[in-house]
Design a protein around this nucleic acid. Structure first.
Lengths: 147, 147
DNA sequence: CTATAATTGAAAACGATTTTCATTATCAGA
DNA sequence: TCTGATAATGAAAATCGTTTTCAATTATAG
């Protein structure tokens, strides 16, 4: 069980190492995602980013999120309403647990899945390339405040 | 491990029991989803539906899929490109395995998850309301034809 | 310091989905 | 069986999230 926080410094050098330029909009966007404990959609990143970088464009948010996802630093989560939000990427065999109320994200280890995956591959004849586990619920605080 | 086929008769009576009228467009759409062994997006349902019901409108497809989902007969699957497709709903603790190539869907039992869910709930303090496991890979036939 | 090429933001385009609205069809009740 | 209330339909327009285009700006190698 781990918090989703991460170091924006690392992310910026990863960007630089891959030939991307370090610009003000990118610094701001990276900082926002890395510092967030919940998944943010592009518009939310945009709104937060405008505070630190008034000229920021929504298009730049989309483009930067796409690059961060390509580099494996950030991952998209799918929400019930069909929209996408972005979060620090899970490392290794971590998966995500999201609060339906406040959006808080928690990572947890899901290594127990391997035996299930092997069994399903054997029985179905499929070659399994990707597994995608996401949990939704209410965090302790929201559970108390809702009832 | 089970095929995704289901009885469209059952679905129609479920619709009727819930106060919905049985119309030609609904009969056609239900028949298409129930008979499909892969997830279909609304446009695919529309194209197939036009064959049997020439006047069919895409809007009706969306509306009918929404009702079927509300009744728990059909479920949405999220795809890598962000689009949605619809499939017979998994029953009980089944989950879905999708072929990235041909789209074929296979259901498998995922009851092994309960202990994982309990552990995560305990450690995180969350009340877990929904778990969402989806596997992607290549079915036996596509794996052979791709290589 | 300069030149080059990557990056930017605004506007327009885009595709999927939803809403609006007038017409049509289902079905409960006479 | 007929009929009226109203649920359901399809077409067009609106909407929403996302992507493309393009001219202006900016980071960085040399």
């Amino acid at each position: 069980m781990s918090t989703p926080f991460s170091s924006s410094k690392d992310w910026l050098s990863r960007l630089a190492n891959h030939g991307y330029r370090l610009t003000e909009p990118r610094r701001v966007i990276v900082e926002i995602i890395a510092a967030s404990d919940r998944a943010l959609n592009p518009l939310e990143v945009f709104d937060l980013g405008r505070d630190a970088c008034p000229g920021l464009g929504l298009v730049t948010v989309y483009r930067t999120l796409e690059k961060l996802e390509d580099l494996g630093l950030v991952q998209r989560v799918h929400q019930a309403d069909g929209c996408h939000a972005y979060l620090r990427a899970a490392n290794g065999h971590e998966h995500i647990l999201l609060c339906n109320q406040c959006g808080q994200a928690v990572f947890f280890a899901g290594d127990d899945l391997t035996s299930l995956l092997e069994r399903v591959a054997r029985q179905s004849g499929f070659e399994i390339q990707e597994h995608w586990l996401q949990l939704h619920g209410l965090c302790a605080r929201c559970r108390d405040s809702v009832r």
